[in-house]
Amino acid sequence: MRLTFDHLVHFVHRTPQEAAEQFCQAGFHAVAGGRHSSWGTWNSLSYFGLSYVEFLAVEHEELARQSENPLVRQCIEDEAKGEGFGQIALRTDEMDAWAERLRGQGLQVTGPVPGSRTRDDGTTLRWRMLFLEDADSALLPPFLIEWSQTDEERREDLTNRGIISAHPNGAAHLKSVGYAVTDLEEATARWQSWFGWEKGEKFHDKELGAICQAFELPGGNVVLCQPTGEGLAQTAWKNRGQRPFFARLAGASKNSEYKIGGGSYFLRALE
């Protein structure tokens, strides 16, 4: 069953509009999203095709603290860690089949959880989410998302609304998102067991100071990174634990690095 990288969740402690403005100052195109009225959260967005970054913030803390949505709970629980990347979502159009499969593997599965968000123009987006827990591991599995629209319908709608648009700095594609992990072999085996993915060759990333393992996915790869010494991976692991910590994007005329809200965005020129 196919999974596609859908989005990176970037927890922020400012308004989503302020987060979008900071992203725009770095040359990216970012727009206001809307409110999750039943969860007490709101967001802003930056799209690279159908892959995107979601800046997620708590708007109504009391409501958010009462929410049973695992992502909202994580957003609250991670507040002490400061701003930074929290989760990724993988897209599917076979949500019920994945729920059955993952439960059969012994994972604790929450959902499918219905979701919706009201846009500023009053229209409502709808989707379903599936949250996973592996009792035998300290790793945080990604969650799955299934949109009510097809990919083609979403792309046309988002483009017509100006939500998908060119980035002034040239960024065009989300290439990968990386996780800091304590034990690369164990983490690789866990991700393989969850989703049945094939792993590539291990490699050393001097820029991150880590030994890494990549899984290739449509929409953006997932890279697991075990720190080998002082460097970005070790700093991220110490500060935020086994969480996403970088996003690599491609399409610019020159290489750039942006530190934004506790996350690292690497923009690379197309080869």
Rank of each mutant, 00 (worst) to 15 (best):
S148R: 12
G220Y: 06
Q192K: 14
W39Y: 12
W127L: 10
H173Q: 13
G241P: 05
T4C: 09
R2K: 13
F266R: 13
S193C: 08
F55E: 00
A180C: 08
G241F: 08
H60Y: 09
W147E: 09
F266A: 02
N239F: 00
E152I: 01
Q149E: 14
P114F: 09
R117Y: 11
A19Y: 05
Q149H: 12
T159K: 04
T15Q: 00
T41K: 00
H29K: 09
P141W: 08
L144T: 04
Q74N: 13
Q74Y: 12
T4Q: 12
W191T: 07
D93A: 12
H60P: 00
A247W: 01
V12L: 04
G34D: 10
G40P: 02
N169T: 07
E186L: 13
F215S: 07
E146Y: 11
A26F: 13
M95V: 04
V223P: 01
W191N: 02
R161F: 00
F55L: 12
G220P: 08
D151K: 10
E61V: 00
A99E: 15
A180N: 06
G104W: 04
D120V: 09
Y265I: 15
G111V: 05
E152G: 01
D121H: 03
A20T: 07
Q213A: 07
R73L: 10
W197A: 06
A172Q: 15
D151F: 04
E207H: 08
Q149I: 01
R65H: 03
L208D: 00
G122N: 08
F85A: 14
E230S: 11
L45K: 05
G33I: 07
P218G: 03
R126I: 03
L158D: 03
L224N: 05
S176Y: 00
I145C: 02
N255Y: 01
T150A: 01
G111A: 06
A20N: 06
V72G: 00
S253W: 04
S37V: 14
G261V: 02
H167G: 08
D6Y: 09
G241E: 05
E79R: 15
H60T: 09
L8F: 08
I76R: 00
N255P: 00
G261W: 08
E153S: 05
G162M: 01
G115D: 12
F48L: 11
Q22F: 02
L50E: 05
A233L: 02
N255S: 07
E133Q: 15
A97Q: 14
H7Y: 14
E100D: 12
E153F: 02
E18V: 10
Q242G: 08
L8K: 04
L125N: 10
L56D: 04
T235K: 12
V58M: 04
N221T: 04
